[in-house]
Design a protein around this nucleic acid. Sequence first.
DNA 1: TGGAGGTATAGAT
DNA 2: TATACCTCCA
Length: 566
Amino acid sequence: MGINNLLKFMKPYVESVHIKKYAGKRVGIDAYSWLHKGAYSCSMEVCLDMEGDKKNRFLQYFMHRISMLRHYKITPVVVFDGGSIPKRKANRDLAMEKLKEGDTDAASELFQVACGVGEKVMVLAMLSTSELIEVVNSLEMLNAYSYIVESCEHNPSDGAPTDPAPYEADAQLAYLTSLETEKGGIVAIISEDSDLLAYNCPAVVFKMDRYGKGEEIILKNAINVAGRKPSFMNFDRELFTGMCILAGCDFLPSVPGIGIVKAYNLVAKYRNLDRVLSVLKLEKGKVVPEDYPTAFRQALAVFQHARVYDAASKKLKPLNPLTPELLQGDHGDLDFLGPDLYPSIAVAIAEGNLDPCTMEPFNHFPQPGYKHSLSFADSASQLSTQEEATGSMQEGCFTVVSCHKTVKKRIRVADSFIDLIGDMPLDATKSSSEGKQMTVISEEVLNESETSALKKLGFPSRNEALAQKEPVPLRSTLNMPSNNPFKKRKRDDEVQLNEAMSIVEQASEVTEVEKPEIFSATQKSEESIDSKVIKPKGKRIAEKLSKQSNPKHVITSKVEYLVPNT
DNA sequence: TGGAGGTATAGAT
DNA sequence: TATACCTCCA
């Protein structure tokens, strides 16, 4: 993923930072990289679509980091995307084979691979769009949030979601860095993806840990600045991007024998990408694929001009203005810049309330057993009414959510999140009926032998789990680690608070730590706490549902539906 | 000899 | 993942 060896090559420009340097600022987050990391500890549960809390660990990881950013007064701008599926399926199938054979170790490893090393499978595998939006709305409990929803491409024949372009989220993040804060812009991006440097993002924080420490590369400290080696003196942004592509990127593998070092040397020597391509052909001969120059220019165009969603104009636009050469080349076919948007549906979805994958209403969370009853046409015609009802959008962070297809089992996202950041007592009814969850193997997913193999791993079958007299309460397994500085308590407990804060201080070498708001609230008695904060969970969620903040913006891909004229 | 590219392993989760 | 180590090659 990303540019081969770029981060290693850019080491002299890497600086240790703490995320608190962005206090008061808006920072973009490549959610994929977090979800991906968080998934390692629950790969099997995710792949098998098991019910139970272990599957939610990746969400805990994600939510913990979001709450940490909020602690440091950073406004997170979260961008989700999704991606390639076939390889994941293959690995999952292989893992199931191993399970049947009883080789649980091998199966576990394969499930991890199936969870997608280098593959953007996360969102599809883990969350439905509605669940993601549930996450987003849970985030609103910390601050006002709105979000963008980005769609996958749809198959024109049956309307089924297909793979999205692999670069939408990166390009969108890059675009946001070009905007002023007042217009929704961000000042930096937290990610693990070196592609963002090829997109010329000005500041990227890599390898951010749970305490907020990370490694930052600020592009303007490198490009056309003397003093450090490798020197990018006399480089411009296009040359830098060209170097990245030559070294091998997600869109175009490098020419055999060319790595980041040779790519740099070629660009530094000739300072002209056309010349570099000519020299490459001369020196490498037949090793250079015939269409490499074309593919190279297209990759360059993607990094410079990928289609992104512009919230102000509610339209897709190129990341940077298209050049006459691009408009004339390839007969004006610019599909490689990203999926185009069908205008009328773009506006409809951009106004919120419509799931771009299912074309069904988006104005509430589907409850268990809920079935959408509205057709797409009905949904679209309702939009204007819903807009009026929900009012104007809140200020806050944008969250881009990509959808592929819904998964059949809902994860108790909101509950998990409240356990992480909330200090609210469990709703009695909810906890006695729905609030207890067990690790249950889905019978739709597993056959008898598979179930038997899984039992060896300690997972009870559905029947066994249901027969258990004392199922494990949801809350007990969703607790954060004891040393989590953002863990919430139900009672005033100055000692625990101080302990937690000292952990934060020690771990992140922070000398002055502000008490996060969530901690301040816990210092009060329950009665005195703002009812908005401490309402029973079920009630609060219900309120949330009734308010259901609209997705602020929705990005869709090419959608071949007949839509009503708008 | 340095760089590319493949593989093994450690670390994180 | 990413880092280290190894082999191959120009």
